[in-house]
């Protein structure tokens, strides 16, 4: 990673949902930086705000229920926090694109693969029909789809799950984006297919020098793919570091708990180290540290005051345990790089 110019910079992002029971702070002050050519893993469990963060970046929040109420998002040096829809459309699918978890539901069942893949090319390029078709076949072949020329005229239901995910990837890659956001790209797939897809994504990333934000709950996928990791809990970043630091010296009790609960870290047939309690709903998050109710090392202070993101030598960590270790406990130095 010689290139240190940030592609994506998210600062103090606040995305709130309005619901019948009041405001839900789904994303509550998230900082995130993705540099050109690197893969950042965004890790967390359901409801931690990782998907909402990515939707905020893509400008795909369900309106009017959700809105960005604070913070900024810079993409390639440009502020896109409140970019009008028309200009957002020029970016989406062109300079940044997204792959979703469910390849079945994210492809339109009533259009052929070719019709769907032609759309970004018609939107963002001035290729002729024939050129578009050639480009699509070429792209499908490069993601390892056999008989690409025929598949273009087939419908999504005629393809298997792995094939559909390959189509989604080629769709996202058509305009050679600078940033690819992949939201649980392999969760719905079998392990052998997952291995194929991860391999493919690595190759593409290398070839195109693209940055990737990989959203996942699977620490194995993180170990496999990422350069840096950002761990989220309850709408906030709780730890962020290089991937090896996360695995070797996790500092936040939540990250430590997650790693300790992986079956291979425990004796076979023995009791797994588990994190007690359950993931809080966004509307349950009270004062103080969001993880305090489940934390084995929680102190009195944790229940009342929200900890700041502490900049440690090798990572940043949102925990009172380390508050003394570094005086520059500032939100501004939130990026362990």
């Amino acid at each position: 990673m010689g290139n240190r110019s940030p592609i994506l910079e998210v600062r103090q992002l606040q995305t709130h949902f309005r619901s019948g029971h009041g405001v839900v702070k789904a994303v509550n002050g998230v900082d995130l930086t993705v540099y050109a050519g690197e893969t950042v893993g965004l890790v967390g469990e359901s409801g931690c705000g990782k998907s909402v963060t990515s939707l905020s970046v893509m400008g795909l929040l369900p309106k009017p229920a959700a809105a960005i109420v604070g913070g900024t998002i810079h993409f390639a040096g440009r502020d896109i926090t409140h970019l009008p829809e028309k200009q957002m459309r020029k970016l989406r699918g062109n300079e940044m694109s997204m792959i979703f978890q469910e390849p079945m539901t994210s492809l339109n069942p009533v259009f052929t693969i070719g019709q769907q893949m032609a759309e970004p090319l018609r939107q963002h390029t001035s290729l002729t029909k024939r050129q578009i078709r050639e480009k699509m076949v070429e792209m499908l072949q490069s993601v390892g789809i056999p008989r690409a020329g025929q598949i273009i005229d087939e419908y999504p239901h005629q393809l298997s799950g792995g094939m559909r995910q390959r189509v989604m990837i080629s769709l996202a890659m058509l305009c050679q984006p600078k940033l690819l956001i992949a939201d649980e790209p392999t969760t719905a797939l079998d392990v052998t297919i997952q291995a194929q897809i991860l391999q493919l994504m690595k190759e593409i990333k290398q070839k195109q020098q693209m940055a990737m934000l990989l959203i996942t709950h699977d620490l194995g996928v993180v170990a496999e793919m990422c350069d840096r990791v950002v761990v989220m809990y309850g709408g906030q970043v709780v730890e962020s570091a290089e991937v090896r630091t996360i695995f070797d010296q996790p500092r936040h009790p939540y990250t430590q708990g997650l790693l300790a609960s992986m079956p291979n870290a425990n004796e076979r047939k023995g009791e797994l180290k588990a994190i007690p309690g359950s993931v809080p709903r966004p509307d349950e998050v009270g004062q103080g540290c969001t993880f305090a109710p489940r934390c084995s090392q929680a102190m009195e202070r944790c229940r009342h005051d929200r900890p700041p993101l502490v900049a440690l030598p090798r990572q940043s960590c949102r925990c009172w345990l380390y508050a003394g270790e570094e005086e520059t406990a500032l939100e501004e130095v939130a990026h362990a790089t």
Binding site: E45, L219, L258, S261, E271, L272, A274, S278, V279
Partner: peptide, 11 residues
Amino acid sequence: LDVSIQSQVIN
């Protein structure tokens, strides 16, 4: 189930 809950249920 979520990762942190999985280990509880396995236990």
